[in-house]
Nucleic acid binder design. Structure first.
Lengths: 328, 328
DNA sequence: TTGAAAGCGCTACCAT
DNA sequence: ATGGTAGCGCTTTCAA
């Protein structure tokens, strides 16, 4: 094992409790003593024993993030941002890519101070955990066990349709994943439908396009197929970043111009949206904001022990780029 | 805090050291006593205090994986496989997506028993860590600090070229990322060049195609550009899974048939290769094997304290699928 | 301002 | 086969 406070105490000629205080910057230690002790600790390359610290303090200052599947760009970006935010606090983050149940076990063992859960598909029954937990996922009525951070998909779709409507578009299609059991996807197209109704725009089945998946290629293939029919919409709402990048590909290959022939607005709001072939106009909660909210929220839960189960619907923001324009 | 062994001891009417032994399945405890104690522990929902355990045992049974960038499919797959393998041992895995330096600090703090490092770009100077560490990356001569698991890229490229040669192909192009500072990419095209020489195939600049990146789209764009020139190669070696899926896309859109007009063999060897538009013939170390080797290797380092710095070059395997055929 | 000592929950050794 | 007990390295009273 390495250096302990006792080693330092011996060298400094003080008691080890004084060393402990000094190293924790306690005001109970004289400046000079403190300085001397810190210097010695540095020289010796002292590293506090984490296990010992937490054994007595009951705190790990660690937040666990459960991410059952490593996949979409949007989520990778979110993980990275969350990590960055956490590093600006006294906490650190660790990640588990295991199934929710297994990950919860691991984190319980670690005694992390708090858990962030990315929900995919199913809503796991959280066995009574004393560990504060918040979830990034879709809020359903029955959710009362823990706080949920959700994006306001309905509002997002309303704004998307509104934007297109105001640009003069009337034939609007939705291309997204309607197949999955992921409730987030369902929320999006429900929101889209509702918005279309509000604007009295009728929607034909042929313009409700199911990609059957969330990869760029799904969006690409669905688009090509749709545009085999020469009567095409003047605007498209894409269900996600990946899907929309496939849509762009598809439309360009058909020989149509974006945005002259077809306008596209995509769900999701990440910086990468600016780097697609045609910079994408998009609607969604900025990842930056999402990360901010998630981190603040979990730390609040940890520190206030205030595990009120509530739902926070985050407001989307529209970012205009090159993929949308007035209908000609 | 929760239940401790002392609580259990009180209820069971034994000393807490007996409880400790019983819970650790020591042969020094009578069967009946053991059974009784375990039962009580279960009923109480006892969970051992990890911090206390490691404080005394000096072991965490945790392996940390450092993965500075979340990106390519191949790596996601590898992480998942490694995680699965580790879960079959007494160890668990945690992941850090921070920079190597920061991640090392975190893991030091956690006192993980071992570290797996995915190297990207630079080779960080590992400040003297007493923690066993192995790396998945490219072996260079000067590497002597820690064991490295590497794929034998040269051999892979040799086999790829050989396979194509034997199918009658003479005009072979390489499409891969030649731009990055990632030494793994460099190894691949060097290997390709060398193999071409050995088969006395001359390679023209126009057939050494730089995608300028590792995304599918880079492969796609590079392919389209190359095939603007009607004199095209009869076979292509793709530099990675993602790139090759882009190549397929590109070629199909030009209206050529795979493998009738152009054969493709891709680097990397993951199950997803079977699911591309045209199932890809590929060459590479199977992820499964890679994961196996990495996990075995780190556990060996941990348990034998045998931190000999060596390099293991893993042998690639060729898997034939639909994307390659005899030159017509 | 400093030191002594209790104790966090557990393992492992020695004694019984 | 079981119990007693010394620590692991640290924080945190309480006393000096």
């Amino acid at each position: 094992m390495g250096i302990t406070i006792k080693d330092i105490a011996k060298i400094a000629g003080v008691s080890y409790s004084t060393v402990s205080k000094a190293l924790n910057d306690s005001p109970l230690v004289k400046k000079d003593t403190k300085k001397k002790i810190v210097k010695i600790a540095d020289e010796l390359g002292y590293e506090p024993n984490f296990a010992a610290q937490r054994l007595v303090s009951k705190q790990t200052k660690i937040i666990g993030l459960i991410w059952p599947t490593i996949e979409r760009v949007v989520l990778s970006t979110l993980v990275t941002k969350i990590n960055n935010k956490i590093n600006k606090t006294p906490y650190s983050m660790i990640l588990s890519v295991e199934s929710t149940e297994t990950a919860l076990d691991t984190f319980r063992k670690f005694q992390v101070d708090g858990i962030i859960l990315f929900e995919e598909n199913s809503k796991p029954s959280i066995r009574q955990t004393t560990i504060p937990l918040i979830s990034y996922g879709v809020a359903k009525e029955r959710d009362v066990e823990y706080p949920i951070i959700d994006a306001n998909h309905e509002q997002a779709m309303y704004q998307a349709v509104k934007h297109l409507y105001e640009l003069g578009h009337r034939d609007i299609a939705y291309i997204g994943d309607l197949s999955s059991t992921d409730p987030m996807q369902a929320e999006k197209y429900n929101g889209f439908m509702k918005a279309m109704e509000q604007y009295m725009l009728s929607i034909e089945d042929i313009n409700m396009i199911d990609t059957g998946g969330l990869d760029w290629y799904n969006g690409y293939a669905a688009t090509k197929k749709r545009f085999e029919n020469p009567t095409y919409p003047t605007a498209i709402v894409g269900g996600s970043y990946d899907i929309s990048s496939g849509i762009i590909r598809g439309i360009k290959e058909i020989g149509l111009d974006i945005p002259r022939d077809v306008s596209i607005i995509s769900y999701d709001n990440i910086p990468q949206m600016a780097n697609t072939e045609i910079p994408l106009t998009c609607i969604g909660v900025p990842v930056e904001r999402l990360a901010e909210e998630i981190v603040q929220s979990i730390i609040h839960c940890i520190e206030e022990k205030n595990i009120t189960s509530n739902v926070k619907k985050m407001s989307p923001i529209l970012v205009e780029r090159a993929s949308c324009e007035k209908r000609k």
